[in-house]
Write a protein that binds this DNA or RNA. Structure first.
Length: 664
DNA sequence: CCAATGATAAACATAT
DNA sequence: TATATGTTTATCATTG
């Protein structure tokens, strides 16, 4: 019911505002927007959907936001999970995601308001449980298979063994048995894990019933598919239609019941976990390998590369990928271990989610959002339905006080700034250094189709500063964008134009002619100069934070925060994504210098920098640009090594400490 | 309401 | 000629 009201709210907003895609936000903002300022200016793209709720009370807003945050978290979780529990039939997957899953990842993160997405904690939990159950089941199936396989092998071996020396056979058997044992242990361990968390009340064997077990999870059916959907590849044509669907559904399938019967999907849809015992994990792979009927993609395959944790092998097509999958990620100890790691990741996420929920409740409690709200969630979407029609109450009461409490420990300053909607100002200017947030959430941005809350200028700068040489060609900048942000893997024409535009427009970007072309460098000084008068009064800030948090802000900010604080595993590149590690590191050290703390190294490291007003620091143009963008030679010509580069002491500080300044 | 800033579009120039 | 790369101008949104 509340769902309905929520959708109501949403629907009131101009339709299609985002249908076009957030990038073309201009149009959308025009009509609808404007109004919303009272309760916080709504960003035009990032948060478009929320435009029309001018009348939400702060409490509602917060509530709403929080729920969104949870959704995001959940989404993230699902995404992670999907990495583990690969969907069943691929072919059905796509259609399924289009029809049955109205909310694509992208949509979630960008619009986030689809009513049915708003789950109550119990629902969330239910979902999680389902997920766990599913995974468990899959894992078990997996183990079972493996055991069977082992037995088979054993048999084979025994037969073969007739021709082999006994001892050899013995050894092999031993090995197998060990493996078996290992498997079993693994399995038990996992089970234990799950049980410890009280997640597995259901026996593996009865795992088939998660859905029934959790009636309240009515909402889940909608979400579930995502589990198997895997991470949608940005740029998928279906995206728009999917969104559309999502919105529509939002309107129609408002109630839980309606979810129960999602639009039918292709029949072969066996990817619903369960019973038939078709271990999704295994089957999916087999299926896909055997029949090529998969025009769609594999959950572990996206953007032309293998999504297996830690593996970014490029595969031209699905077929190749399948091959790769079967060879590189076959059933072996390694894969199993990785699988386990992935499970832990999921668990971590889940734990974090729980924590965040708790925090949310505390926050809400503190904000006096009705004591009755200890469980704001029990009733999901109360949001708009909530008893605060008055709205607009925010200013004094809620606004001022909340400030502190609002700042969740886990959230870096970055997360607070009015992230989302105001992609621009927020981060760039007054907020924390892009690098720190980026560093911490780069995994997130890399995979989630969420618009990063940074301005183009700051992103470009970041890209450039990340390199040892502190210079990049336009193309390299492009690459950086696409590499670092899923969001920039689509609508290329738009953002590339924007990048060029920014490069030309801002004095801080200096083009340096080179033998082989030109590279772009950053004139830190100019960059600093360009900093606008920062936000002053705290009240404003507060308001900002609130409003920011509200809409899409959650996206970037909160998600980022979540990502940051909660994914030890995730953020540990070495664990999940060795490949990306390289990118990450420079980020964090480099620019950052750390948001919070002043740069250690004094200017010494980069002497030149202070001098030339023009070409900023010592940037020296690479004689021969490129070659391999990544191939940064160790002994950079001039280069102050990464860390040192950071250097522009004073200036840097200024910027990096912004958060602090702001408050003053 | 205004100015500053940013995003997006688009026209146009130039180089490859 | 087609593209990539740059520059510039215009319009709109958000913020202070």
């Amino acid at each position: 019911m509340m769902v309905e009201s929520a959708s109501e709210t949403i629907r009131s907003a101009p339709s299609g505002q985002n249908g076009v895609g957030s990038l073309s936000g201009q149009a959308d903002g025009g009509g609808s927007g404007a109004a919303g300022t009272a309760s916080g200016g709504a960003g035009r793209d990032a948060a478009g959907v929320a435009d029309s709720n001018g009348e939400m009370s702060p409490a509602e807003l917060l509530h709403f936001q929080q729920q969104q945050a949870l959704q995001v978290a959940r989404q993230f979780l699902l995404q992670q999970a999907s990495g583990l529990s690969s969907p069943g039939n691929n072919e059905s997957k796509q259609s399924a995601s289009a029809v049955q899953v109205p909310v694509s990842v992208a949509m979630m993160s960008q619009q986030m308001l689809t009513p049915q997405q708003i789950l109550s904690p119990p629902q969330l939990q239910a979902l999680l449980q389902q997920q766990q159950a599913l995974m468990l089941q899959q894992l078990q199936e997996y183990y079972k298979k493996q055991q069977e396989q082992l037995h088979l092998q054993l048999l084979t071996q025994q037969q073969a063994g007739k021709q082999q020396p006994k001892e050899a056979l013995g050894n092999k058997q031993l090995a197998f048995q060990q493996q078996l044992l290992q498997m079993q242990q693994l399995q038990q361990q996992h089970l234990l894990n799950l049980q410890r968390q009280g997640l597995v009340s259901l026996q593996p064997s009865q795992a088939s019933g998660p859905l029934q077990t959790l009636p309240q999870a009515a909402v889940c059916p909608t979400d579930l598919p995502q589990l198997w959907k895997g991470e949608g590849a940005p740029g998928q044509p279906a995206e728009d239609s999917v969104r559309q669907e999502g919105l529509d559904l939002a309107g129609t399938a408002a109630t839980a019941t309606s979810f129960a019967s999602p639009p039918k999907v292709s029949p072969p849809l066996s990817h619903h976990p369960l019973p038939n015992g078709q271990p999704t994990v295994l089957t999916s792979r087999r299926d896909s390998s055997s029949h090529e009927e998969t025009p769609s993609s594999h959950p572990l395959y996206g953007h032309g590369e293998c999504k297996w944790p830690g593996c970014e092998t490029l595969c031209e097509d699905l077929g190749q990928f399948i091959k790769h999958l079967n060879t590189e990620h076959a059933l072996d100890d390694r894969s199993t271990a990785q699988c386990r790691v992935q499970m832990q990741v999921v668990q971590q996420l889940e734990i974090q989610l729980a924590k965040e929920s708790e925090r949310l409740q505390a926050m809400m409690a503190h904000l006096h959002m009705r004591p009755s709200e200890p469980k704001p969630f029990s009733q999901p979407v109360t949001v708009s339905a909530d008893p605060f029609p008055d709205g607009l109450v925010h200013p004094p009461t809620s606004a001022a006080a909340p400030v502190t409490p609002l700042r969740p420990p886990g959230l870096g300053s970055a997360s607070l700034h009015g992230g989302g909607p105001a992609r621009r100002r927020s981060s760039d200017k007054f907020c924390s250094p892009i690098s720190s947030e980026l560093a911490q959430n780069h995994e997130f941005y890399k995979n989630a189709d969420v618009r990063p809350p940074f301005t183009y200028a700051s992103l470009i700068r970041q890209a450039i500063l990340e390199t040892p040489d502190r210079q990049l060609t336009l193309n390299e900048i492009y690459n950086w964008f696409t590499r670092m942000f899923a969001y920039f893997r689509r609508n290329t024409a738009t953002w590339k134009n924007a990048v060029r535009h920014n490069l030309s427009l801002h004095k801080c970007f200096v083009r340096v002619e080179n033998v082989k072309g030109a590279v772009w460098t950053v004139d830190e000084r100019e960059y600093q100069k360009r900093r606008p008068p920062k936000m002053t009064g705290s009240p404003t800030l507060v308001k900002n934070m609130i409003s920011g948090l509200s809409y899409g802000a959650l996206n970037a900010s909160y998600q980022a925060a979540l990502a940051e604080s909660s994914f030890p595993l995730l953020s540990n590149p070495s664990m999940l994504n060795p490949g990306s590690a390289s990118n990450l590191l420079p980020l964090s050290q480099d620019d950052t210098g750390a948001p919070g703390e002043p740069l250690p190294s004094n200017g010494s490291s980069s002497p030149p920098r202070l001098s030339p007003p023009q070409y900023s620091h010592q940037v020296q143009v690479k004689e021969e640009p490129t070659e391999a963008e990544e191939d940064r030679r160790p002994g950079a010509p001039l280069g102050p090594p990464n860390a040192s580069i950071v250097g522009p002491p004073e200036e840097r500080d200024l910027e990096e400490e912004l958060p602090g300044e702001e408050l003053s």
